Amino acid sequence: MKKFVIGLLVCLFMIVLVACGDDEKKEKEVEEAAGPKLEITDEEKIDDNEIVAIINGDDVKGTTYNLVYSQLKLHAGQFDKDIDVEEIKNATMDSIIDRQLLIQQAKEEGIEITDETANSEFDTLKSENGDALSTLLEQYQLTESGFKEQLKFELTMNEFVEKAIKVSVTDQELEDYYDQAKEGNEAIPEFDEIKEQLKAQLLQQKTEEELQAKIDKVKEKAEIEKKI
């Protein structure tokens, strides 16, 4: 499920973290967090109204494809100068299928984020972060409507995780996790110093694994038709 979250969510957190700074500092730090700006050509984009996939009868259009594609490509550009466009395209299709399946599962749980909620969240971010948010949109080549769509999805995902995913971590698992980390880094602090940090990391890892497992399970019976 990491492919849902990469890039934009990190930058949203970055905006919040630097909210106490001045506007110029926020803008600079958000730009650095987003990484190098990469161009996305018109040939890489899909028409916003083109249907790219039909999942259990629900149409997924080019707007969602372009949103996910831009995040995946820009994220990949932070780690690899030689970007495989075909690989990004395939990952984008996988991601939008998983996104739609998650949205459908969330609806079955009674979770549906309204446009009004997404708009309100966006307005709050915009009022608190000014130019930093504009920098984020430019860096990811996102429109305000695209950003709101991502917000809507992430709010849906967060509520679904809170309601449907239950994971826990034992002390033994934490100690094993620490030992594994220590094998590659002898300079790591003592266990008691970072126990809570390790617990948060392991809970997040387990949550992502459980969430992906749920999506993979419903995908086995889903009716999926790729149109591109």
Rank of each mutant, 00 (worst) to 15 (best):
R99A: 10
I188E: 00
I188L: 04
Q105A: 14
D98I: 06
L136P: 05
Q100H: 11
L102M: 07
Q172P: 14
D115L: 06
Q201Y: 01
L125V: 10
A118F: 03
G130P: 07
L155R: 07
K107N: 12
E121T: 11
N185G: 01
I188K: 02
Q141L: 07
E175Y: 09
G146K: 08
A181K: 00
I103P: 07
Q105L: 15
E109C: 13
Q141A: 10
L102Q: 05
K195V: 08
E196A: 13
L133N: 01
Q150M: 11
E186S: 06
Q180V: 00
K148M: 03
Y140S: 05
T143L: 02
E112H: 14
F160A: 09
Y178I: 01
F122N: 01
S145T: 15
F191K: 12
T143N: 03
L151K: 04
D192L: 14
E149G: 12
D171H: 12
L125F: 13
S168V: 05
D179M: 00
Y177G: 01
L198S: 02
I165C: 09
V169Y: 01
N119G: 08
E128A: 15
G146C: 06
E193K: 15
E196F: 09
F153D: 05
L102S: 07
K206E: 01
E138M: 03
Q141K: 09
F147Q: 02
L125R: 04
A164W: 08
E144H: 06
N129C: 06
K182I: 00
F153Q: 06
E128H: 15
Q100T: 15
L137M: 05
A181T: 01
L142I: 03
V169A: 02
N158G: 14
K199H: 07
L155A: 10
Y178K: 00
Q104G: 09
R99K: 14
E196G: 11
N119A: 12
N158R: 14
F160D: 09
E149R: 13
Q139F: 02
R99T: 11
L203C: 04
L137W: 00
Q139A: 08
K206P: 05
L142A: 03
L125G: 03
A181V: 00
K107A: 12
L102T: 14
Q197P: 06
E154C: 08
L125N: 04
E109N: 14
T143E: 05
E162Y: 14
L133P: 02
T114R: 04
G110C: 13
A164T: 11
E175W: 07
E138H: 08
T114V: 10
T117R: 03
K148I: 04
A132K: 04
E116T: 15
F153L: 06
I165A: 08
V169P: 04
Q201F: 00
E173Y: 02
